[in-house]
Every structure is written in C-alpha cells, then in structure tokens.
Amino acid sequence: MTLEILRTKEELRNLIDAYASLGDEKKISEQMGIFTPDAVYKVYMNNSLVANISGTENLEKEFNGHASLVKTYFTMNGQHTVKIDGDTATGISFSQLKMIRASEGKDIITDYSVKYDDKYVFQNGKWLIKERTGHFLIIEARPLNS
C-alpha cells in the first residue's frame, strides 16, 4: 500500500467523521460543504426507500427540517472500508446513531444502526461525497430515563 493510498483513506475517513460531527452539532450548512452540489442522498428503512434527495440545496432543506425536530444527535462511526480508483472511490461505513426527540412531554431516544454505501469524488483538491445511501438496519425507540 502506497503512502498516497494511505493518505486518501485517511481523508475519506475524515470525510465521514466530519459528516457525523457536523450533523451532531446541527451545522447543516457546513455539512453541505462535504457533498458535491449534485449529490444524491437516499435512505432505506426496513428495505423500503423512504428518502431520495438530489442536490445540496434540497438536502440542506431536508436536513434542517429534520434537525428542527431533534433535541440531540449522537453518532459513533465504526468500520470504514474504501476502494479507490483515481479521483473516485466507493466506501462502506457503519454508524450507531442516537436521536432524542420530545413527544407528549417526554424525551424519546431512538437508536439507529446504519450501514452507509458511499461514492466519493476528488474535486478542487478535496474529497467530497457524491452519493450516500443509508440503510437503517436496526431501529429502536424508547423513553429516555433521566
């Protein structure tokens, strides 16, 4: 493995970590900077497509709408594997995502176990997410014990 490939793998890992950190902090406009302007974002729950959004303008509106309903996000990224082919790459990553929302005067925590399938491109000197498909594999919601 060359030093260039190791650097690229680190840059791609930093990209998915930035996606999680910026989302957790609700820095949605900054988060859009890690996507290509024509990015595609899809979400599957129980093997059903529930979101298919194109372009960062639409994605920012969708993410802001969602974030307005969430009190707290917490994401932990796990394994991340990539295949690099010049200025493009594909990746698979796994995340554990927690969201706290208020419902009927109670805080509800939802745990999501997510597998992301990504397509990345190297543009203007940096790696960006071109396509991100989230497969929400396990979803558990319960009242949060304070």
Rank of each mutant, 00 (worst) to 15 (best):
H66P: 00
S68E: 13
L15T: 07
E11M: 00
T36G: 09
S21E: 09
K106F: 02
M99A: 04
K26D: 02
S95A: 14
T8P: 04
E10N: 07
N14S: 02
D17I: 06
I34F: 02
G65S: 08
P37G: 08
N47A: 10
S48I: 03
V43G: 12
L12K: 00
I28Y: 12
A20F: 12
T8Q: 04
K42A: 01
V40D: 12
E60G: 06
F63S: 11
K27L: 04
A102T: 10
S95M: 11
D38R: 05
G33Q: 13
M76T: 15
Q96I: 00
A67K: 03
V43C: 10
T36Y: 06
D24K: 04
I53Y: 12
G55Y: 02
L49S: 07
E10C: 01
Q31V: 05
I28S: 10
L97P: 01
N58A: 14
L69E: 12
N58R: 11
M32E: 15
Y41W: 15
G91Y: 00
R13N: 07
V82I: 06
S29Q: 06
I84Y: 12
S48A: 13
K98P: 02
T90I: 11
N64E: 10
F94T: 11
L15M: 11
M45A: 06
S21N: 09
V82P: 02
N52Y: 14
P37K: 08
L69P: 04
M32W: 15
K9I: 00
T88D: 01
G91M: 01
I84C: 12
G65A: 09
T36E: 04
L15D: 11
T75M: 11
K27V: 05
F35Q: 03
H80T: 13
G65M: 08
I92R: 07
R101L: 09
I100P: 00
H80K: 10
K26Q: 04
K27F: 01
P37D: 13
S93Y: 05
N64L: 10
S54M: 13
G33V: 09
S93W: 08
N14K: 06
E10H: 03
G105Q: 09
I108T: 04
G23P: 05
I108M: 11
D107K: 13
F35G: 06
M32F: 14
Y41V: 15
N58W: 03
Q79K: 01
I16F: 03
D24S: 09
D85I: 00
G105C: 12
L69G: 12
T8H: 06
N58Q: 10
V70T: 13
T8G: 06
N52T: 12
S21L: 07
